[in-house]
Structure formats: structure tokens, C-alpha cells
Amino acid sequence: MNRIMKVTKLHLNKISTFALVPPQIVGFVLIVSIIIALVIQRASDGAIDAAYVDGARSNSAIVWSLPGFLIYYGVQAVATSYPFALALGTTRRNFILGTMLANALQALYIAVMLVVLLGIELATGHWFMNAYVLDVYAVGSGNAWTLFATAFVGVMLCLTIGGFFGAVWVRFGAKGPTVVAIVLGLGLALTLLAVAPRLGEIFASITYSGLAVAAAIIVVLGLAGTWLAMRRASVR
């Protein structure tokens, strides 16, 4: 357990990236969303009606704002820390478990941050400007527990995917992630082709709990793939 915690602390040494970049990204999304909301309000003579609220709550910018950074962070967390960790005597198993714990802390941090911002948004009448950023359909329509669960699982998913591709890069070199991405993309395309006649039915049956289960399964598969890739990965 002590060695696992040492790996976690190794990842937390990058505290500026860990703690400062996510709120900067969210802050930028908040500012842009407020500006867009003001533009829409001015264009409609400031009318705040049910149609406006419905459209504003369809804003999914917060959902798409962090995945790019998180996947990158997951890649570099494995690719850059792995050689140093093994040089200090950490086993591959402990490295993966320590990285998973660091990912969980990152997910918890971001989830709590978003819930706090949701509380501020609701308390201020949507930033005093009827700007909907976190009180949106995509993350629970103002339900703090749904937002927390969505954020935690989503962050874990992105970090795990990034870590998997980082492990593939360490194991197979620069071409490894490209080949894996092509294979996964092809597999996804063939799957969609096979279920195409029932896509409407499938999308209609999607629920938050179903998405959470699917994300959890992908996280487990991603960790398993990371382990398999790193079992014979050399220290570069």
C-alpha cells in the first residue's frame, strides 16, 4: 500500500496542472456561456420565457470542455511518470494502482468543484444573467448528485482512456496508439452498422444509470488494457 501511495504522490507533484488547469478551463467556458446568453437575450429583446430556458438548458459546453485536457493528462501521467517510477523500484502493478488512485482524486476534485459552481449558479439566479452553464440537461438539470456522479465517472473515464493510450505508446512506440485507435474506431463503426436498424430504440432507452454502468465497464477494460500493455513495457 505504501508503494501505491508513493506513485499517487508522484502524480500529485504536478499540482499546478492537477489543480489549476481544470478551473481555468471551466472558468473560460463560464465566461463564454455568459456572453452567448447575453447575446441571445439582446437578440430577443431580453425575453426570458420557457422556450429560452429550454434552449439555455441544452447548453452542453461544460460536458465537452474538459475531456481533451483530461485525456492528454491521462496520457502524460503514464508516459512520463512510468520510467521514473520503475527506476525507483515500483512494480508495474503498483504503478497502475497508484495511478488509478490519483485519477480518482482528480475526479473527486473536479466533481466537487462543479457541484460548488452549480450551487453558486443556482443561488445567483444563474450568474445574475440567466446564463445556464451547469444547470443543464446534460448533467442533471440542477441535481447536485447527478452532476457529481456524472463528473466523477466522466473524469475517471477520460483519464483511464488517456492512461491506456499512454501505456500503448510506452509499450509499442509512436505507432501503437494510432494502430489501436484505428482498430477501436473500426470496431465501433462495425458495431454501429450492425445495430443501425435499432439505433432509435437504443437511444430512447438510454438512462443516466445505464451510461454510468457503461462508463464503469470501459474504465475497468481500460485499466485491464493498461495492465496488459505495461506488463512487458520497457523503461524508455
Rank of each mutant, 00 (worst) to 15 (best):
M113H: 11
L188W: 11
V195Q: 07
I217G: 07
S16K: 15
I34K: 01
A189Q: 13
R42T: 11
L184I: 14
Y109V: 09
L20V: 11
T8N: 03
S16H: 14
K175I: 15
A77D: 08
V112S: 02
G89L: 08
V116S: 05
Y73F: 12
T91L: 09
R198T: 10
L30N: 01
A102N: 06
V116L: 13
A216M: 05
L88T: 03
G27L: 04
N130L: 07
E201P: 01
A61C: 05
S60D: 13
R92V: 06
S60Y: 09
A149M: 13
A138F: 05
T160P: 05
S60L: 07
W169T: 09
T90L: 03
A215M: 11
A107V: 08
F148Q: 09
D45V: 00
T160D: 05
V213R: 02
A37N: 11
A19K: 03
A144D: 06
V213Y: 03
L199I: 15
V26D: 02
V112E: 01
I25L: 12
C158N: 15
A56H: 04
T91Y: 10
Y109Q: 04
F84I: 09
A56W: 05
M129P: 00
Y52V: 07
A85M: 00
G89Y: 11
G154C: 12
S65G: 10
I34S: 01
A196P: 00
M1L: 08
T178M: 15
G89K: 09
T207E: 04
A144N: 02
L20C: 10
R92F: 08
D135I: 02
F148K: 07
Y208A: 11
L192F: 15
I217L: 15
K6Q: 15
I15K: 15
A204Q: 12
G154Q: 07
A111C: 03
F28G: 13
G166S: 06
L186K: 00
A181D: 10
A50V: 04
Y137F: 13
V26H: 03
L70Y: 04
W64R: 03
F203H: 14
G176W: 08
F148G: 06
V116A: 12
G68M: 14
A144R: 06
Y82C: 10
Y52F: 15
A194P: 04
V29R: 00
V21L: 06
F84D: 01
Q106G: 04
N94I: 06
T124N: 02
V29Y: 00
P67I: 04
D45L: 05
Y82I: 11
G187N: 08
G225I: 07
I218M: 09
L114K: 06
Q106N: 07
A151H: 03
Q24M: 14
F128N: 08
L86T: 06
T178R: 13
T17Q: 12
D135V: 04
L118G: 12
A104Y: 09
I62T: 15
A181C: 11
G119T: 11
V168L: 13
F164G: 00
V170Y: 07
I96S: 08
A79G: 04
A123G: 10
G142Y: 10
A194T: 14
N103T: 02
A87V: 01
G176A: 15
V63W: 10
V115L: 02
A56L: 06
V112W: 01
L221P: 04
